[in-house]
Simulated assay, not measured.
Amino acid sequence: METYTEKIGSKLNELLEKNYDAEKGYKKASENTENLSLKNFFQRKAQERYNFGHEIKSELQTFGEEPDKGGSFTGSMHRTWMDVKAIFSSDNEEAMLEEAIRGEKASVEEYEDVLNEMSLPDSTKNLLLNQKNTICNDLNNIKRLEDLND
């Protein structure tokens, strides 16, 4: 039977994997665009997710839990799909933005699931709320970037 700290550790590791995946996806997106605004945006998002990962790792360690290494299978599939869209789409920047929006919406849902699923210590709850709010704010920025490309 899982202890309370193991359950928190498991949920944090799930979010950690999603952040690894998002970081890799944003790096890949920045490599697949020539648009300087988009390239800078994707690079900033990759760095942000890298930072989120380190914050989650630190939180895991406060519970004595071991951080997972590497990205998830789903994330790898997501990045592969993003590669295919970039290659085969006639308007690949728009496709990448659409995929970024989809990924960010999924991230918000994942954070909300963890925040609502169990009672978390204040430090963990505040960390996850701050990260979720940053993602929500950037969703609006992505939508604005998409409008600029129309």
Results as ranks from 00 to 15, higher is better:
Thr124Gln: 04
Glu23Phe: 03
Val114Cys: 14
Gln131Glu: 13
Met96Glu: 04
Phe41Ser: 05
His78Leu: 14
Gly103Pro: 01
Leu36Asp: 01
Asp150Ile: 11
Arg144Gly: 02
Lys7His: 06
Leu16Ala: 02
Glu104Gln: 14
Asn92Gln: 15
Leu148Tyr: 14
Thr62Ile: 12
Asn40Phe: 12
Ser76Pro: 03
Glu2Trp: 13
Asn140Ser: 06
Thr5Met: 08
Asp138Asn: 11
Ser30Glu: 11
Arg102His: 11
Leu139Ser: 01
Tyr50Asp: 15
Asn92Cys: 06
Met1Pro: 01
Phe42Thr: 02
Ala46Gly: 03
Asp91Ile: 00
Lys39His: 13
Asn40His: 15
Tyr111Val: 10
Tyr50Val: 09
Glu98Val: 01
Lys105His: 07
Lys7Met: 06
Ser10Leu: 13
Gly103Arg: 01
Leu128Val: 03
Glu93Met: 01
Arg102Glu: 05
Met96Ile: 11
Ala86Leu: 09
Leu15His: 06
Glu2Asn: 14
Glu34Val: 11
Leu148Asn: 12
Asn130Gly: 10
Met118Ser: 15
Gly9Glu: 05
Arg144Asp: 09
Ile142Thr: 03
Ser107Cys: 06
Asp138Met: 02
Glu59Ile: 00
Asn141Ile: 00
Asn116Ser: 15
His78Cys: 10
Asp83Asn: 14
Glu117Lys: 14
Glu59Trp: 00
Gly75Asp: 07
Glu34Tyr: 05
Cys136Tyr: 04
Lys125Gln: 06
Asn92Leu: 08
Glu109Asn: 07
Pro121Asp: 09
Tyr4Ile: 04
Gly75Ser: 09
Gly53Cys: 07
Asn133Pro: 06
Phe52Gly: 01
Asn19Ala: 10
Ser72His: 10
Gly70Asp: 07
Glu93Phe: 02
Asn126Cys: 00
Ala29Cys: 08
Thr5Glu: 15
Lys132Phe: 10
Ala22Tyr: 08
Met96Tyr: 03
Leu139Asn: 04
Pro67His: 08
Ile8Glu: 02
Leu128Ile: 07
Gln43Asn: 05
Glu104Arg: 06
Lys7Pro: 00
Glu93Ser: 09
Asn149Ala: 08
Ile8Thr: 04
Glu99Gly: 05
Arg102Asn: 13
Thr62Glu: 09
Asn141Glu: 11
Met96Arg: 12
Leu129Gln: 10
Asp150Asn: 11
Glu109Tyr: 13
Pro121Cys: 05
Lys24His: 06
Asn137Gly: 08
Arg49Pro: 13
Thr62Asn: 12
Glu55Arg: 03
Leu127Thr: 05
Met1Cys: 06
Asp138His: 10
Lys24Trp: 07
Thr74Ser: 14
Phe52Trp: 09
